[in-house]
Design a binder for these strands. Structure first.
Length: 423
DNA sequence: TCTGGGGTCCTAGGACCC
DNA sequence: TCTGGGGTCCTAGGACCC
C-alpha cells in the first residue's frame, strides 16, 4: 500500500477529437496540421501505420495524403481545448490530487491503493472518459511520475487493455533495458546524444550510473530523473499551477512579409491577443518584448531581432502595451528581408490586484474608464467572436499576414453558429 | 509556394556588495 | 614572493516539455 502516480494520456488526441464529431473517420487515417497548416502534429494509428511522421512538413506529403485517402485537418484549438476541459473534469473526479500536465495529459496521485484496486480504477477511468466524451485514453501507473510516463508508453504499445502497472523491480529493469535514453521524460535529443558518446544508450544503463556522474553530465534535473527511474519520487505533483511568469502570442505569417506596415498590423493584433490572455488570467505585465524573424528553412539572408522594454508601470491595458510594442518593432525591423514570423512576449507578470501603484499610471477616473473600456472590449469579443472589436492599427483590409487554416473543422462545442446538426 | 505555438528551468559569467 | 572569501542579482543561452 503505497502512493502511486497515474499518467492518463489521450490517444492521438487531436485526431480523436476530429473523430468524435465525424464517426465516419473511424478506422481511417487522420492527420492534424499545426497552425498555418505547416507540419503534422497529430496522427491516428492508421496514419502512423502509413508512415506519416510527426513534425513532417505538410507540403511535402500533399500528394501522398490524397493518394492514400488520408483525412487532413487544420488545427482547431477551440475544439481541442474544450474537449480537453471535459476530459480533465472527469479525471478530477477520480482523485483530489490531479495535475493537468498538458492539453491531453493528466497525472493523478492515488494513495493507499492495492495493485488490484489500482488496475480496477484505471480501467474505470478509461471506460468513463470514453463513454462520456468519446475520447480513448491509456493509463500508466508507477511510483514516480517518470516511470508512470514510461508505463503509459507501454500501455499504448503493448496490445492489452490500455492500462499498465510498472512496480516490480525486475519488470522495471527489463523495460528500461529496452528503452533508449532519449525516450525518457526529461532527456532530450541533445542529452541523449551526449550520453551515447559516453557509452550510455539505454535507460537501464543510465539508471546504473552513480549520482555524481549523472549530476556532472545532466545537472540536477537529470539527477532527479535518474532517481525517479529508481522509484524514488523527486518530481512532485503540481496540483496548483505556479503563477505564470511570461505570456506569448506569436504566429507565422500566411505569406512572407517585407513591408513594415503589414508587420505593424500583425504585431498590433498579437498585442491585443496577449492583452486578452493577460486580463483573463487577472495579471499585469511589467515589460513587453517583440521579436521578428525570417524563415530559417529558406536559403537567402537571415535576420532575427528581439528587444524587451520595461513599461512605466505594470499594466494589462492593451492601449498601454500597444505603443511600446510598435516602437520596439520599428527599432528591430530591418528593411530588405522577407519575414516569416513575429511575436509579442509579456514579461514580469504579477497579479493585477494588491500591488503598489505608481504615479505614472492612470489612476482615479481615468483608470476606471480605461478598465471599463477593456472590459467592454473583452465582453463584446467573447459574445460576438474574437476580433469583433479591435484597434484600427491591426488593419481593416485584407490581412496578408493571417495564417492559413484551409481545412479547419467547425468549432462544434464553442460556437453557436457551428453547432453540429443532427438529421 | 509551403516547416507551429507556448512555456519552464538551469548554468555560467559579469557586475556589484561587504 | 605575495594578491580573500562569500554572497546576490541579472542576463544570455541552452535544454527540455507538450
Amino acid at each position: 500500500m503505497r502512493d502511486f502516480y497515474l499518467m492518463v494520456d489521450c490517444n492521438n488526441f487531436y485526431a480523436s477529437c476530429e473523430r468524435v464529431f465525424d464517426p465516419s473517420l473511424e478506422g481511417k487515417p487522420v492527420v492534424v496540421l499545426s497552425n498555418n497548416d505547416g507540419c503534422v502534429i497529430a496522427r491516428s494509428n492508421e496514419a502512423k501505420a502509413l508512415g506519416v511522421v510527426m513534425g513532417e512538413p505538410a507540403y511535402k506529403r500533399e500528394a501522398f495524403f490524397s493518394r492514400s485517402g488520408v483525412h487532413v485537418f487544420s488545427s482547431n484549438y477551440a475544439l481541442y481545448g474544450d474537449m480537453s476541459a471535459r476530459v480533465m473534469r472527469i479525471l478530477a473526479g477520480f482523485s483530489e490530487e490531479a495535475e493537468v500536465y498538458s492539453i491531453d495529459e493528466c497525472f493523478l496521485l492515488l494513495r493507499g491503493f492495492s495493485s488490484a484496486s489500482l488496475l480496477r480504477t484505471a480501467k474505470e477511468i478509461r471506460r468513463t472518459v470514453r463513454q462520456w466524451t468519446g475520447i480513448p485514453v491509456c493509463v500508466g501507473i508507477a511510483r514516480t511520475k517518470t516511470l508512470a510516463k514510461i508505463a503509459n508508453r507501454l500501455a499504448k504499445k503493448e496490445s492489452g487493455d490500455g492500462v499498465r502497472l510498472l512496480e516490480d523491480e525486475e519488470d522495471i529493469d527489463r523495460v528500461l533495458s529496452g528503452l533508449e535514453t532519449g525516450d525518457i521524460w526529461g532527456i532530450g535529443r541533445r542529452s541523449a546524444r551526449r550520453l551515447g558518446d559516453c557509452g550510455v544508450r539505454t535507460a537501464l544503463e543510465l539508471k546504473g550510473r552513480d549520482d555524481d556522474w549523472v549530476r556532472r553530465h545532466l545537472t540536477v534535473t537529470g539527477l532527479r530523473t535518474v532517481l525517479e527511474l529508481r522509484q524514488i519520487p523527486c518530481i512532485a505533483l503540481e496540483d496548483a499551477p505556479p503563477p505564470a511568469r511570461s505570456l506569448v502570442c506569436s504566429r507565422s505569417f500566411g505569406t512572407r512579409i517585407e513591408n513594415l506596415a503589414s508587420l505593424e498590423e500583425a504585431v498590433s493584433a498579437y498585442v491585443q491577443r496577449a492583452g486578452e490572455k493577460l486580463r483573463r488570467k487577472g495579471l499585469v505585465a511589467g515589460a513587453v518584448q517583440v521579436f521578428l524573424e525570417t524563415n530559417r528553412f529558406q536559403p537567402g539572408p537571415q535576420y532575427a531581432g528581439s528587444r524587451c522594454r520595461a513599461l512605466p508601470a505594470p499594466t494589462a491595458d492593451t492601449l498601454a502595451l500597444h505603443g511600446p510594442a510598435l516602437e520596439i518593432l520599428r527599432d528591430i525591423h530591418k528593411p530588405g528581408y522577407r519575414y516569416q514570423k513575429a511575436g509579442v512576449i509579456l514579461q514580469d507578470l504579477s497579479p493585477a490586484t494588491g500591488r503598489q501603484l505608481s504615479f505614472l499610471e492612470p489612476h482615479g477616473e481615468e483608470k476606471t474608464r480605461r478598465d471599463a473600456l477593456m472590459r467592454v472590449m473583452d465582453r463584446i469579443n467573447t459574445v460576438h467572436g474574437r476580433g469583433t472589436l479591435t484597434l484600427a492599427a491591426s488593419g481593416l483590409g485584407k490581412k496578408e499576414w493571417h495564417m492559413r487554416q484551409e481545412r479547419r473543422s467547425p468549432s462544434y462545442t464553442t460556437s453557436w453558429a457551428e453547432l453540429p446538426v443532427v438529421h
